[in-house]
Nucleic acid binder design. Structure first.
Lengths: 125, 125
DNA sequence: CCTTGACCTGGAGTGCACTCCAGGTTGTAT
DNA sequence: ATACAACCTGGAGTGCACTCCAGGTCAAGG
């Protein structure tokens, strides 16, 4: 019962991406062409899942798809692109840190406003 | 020279929103109708700027415009909506915290990957 | 048998948040 | 006087990232 090749629906469930999105990402070249079962159905292996997780994270933190495509293209091109890949990740890290800052500031603002509202609710509930 | 009413271009500069976006937000009711100079040009007061800053933060942290419209509508409706406004802000705060978590995880992942790449660059620079 | 559900393809459609444009007025600088 | 920049309106257009659809194949269950 310990399957290691998953159907697209199962991958969708596990990753939270939709079936459509998984095929879409493959079309865009973000995923390598997925292995097929004899009936033509996709079978995702562990490495595909790892890739999907990474991509999901990049998207969730605001990297545009075009950049992810570039990154994957570099990855495919081999070791000579390591430096550029690192630089891309560094740039994205900067963006992630900036987002964290913005979110932390907003967090404080929201907490203050919520607190103020709670005060007002206390005065005339 | 200490003006307190600003033209739309100045507001755009200060806030980082575009002139178009400022008019767009006003159309959507996110901003109250902006005061006009005799020539019909908008003059933004300090309260408008405060509002814009708040809206900007909500957007930057992922609140959809439709929700911001709802919040502003509640605000206009007066004190009886304080509770619902607080609940909205609490919900958004939850989302902000979740985003921070995701970003922190991704930050760690990126730092690890960058580190690994630096290692590899060290071996055959 | 035959229905059901998960999968397939290629291509069209959607929602969001802007962004741009045409055509026009006004106030300031040369 | 005139050129120029900044503003105005209403409406059309854009880019992104999906999401949906029609029409079809295939395997298992009743």
């Amino acid at each position: 019962m310990t399957e290691q090749k998953l159907a697209i629906g199962q991958v969708a469930q596990q990753t939270g991406l939709s079936v459509d999105t998984l095929r879409y990402y493959e079309d865009l070249g973000l995923l390598d062409p997925i292995e097929r079962a004899p009936n033509g159905h996709r079978r995702y292996g562990p490495r595909d899942l790892t890739r999907i997780d990474f991509l999901k994270r990049l998207r969730a933190t605001g990297m545009p798809i075009s950049q992810m495509q570039h990154y994957v293209a570099l990855y495919r091109a081999g070791d000579s692109t390591i430096r550029e890949r690192r630089e891309m990740l560094e740039a994205h890290l900067d963006s992630v840190l900036a987002q964290i800052d913005m979110l932390e500031e907003t967090r404080t603002l929201l907490e203050r406003k919520i607190h103020a509202y709670l005060q007002q609710e206390g005065h005339s509930p």
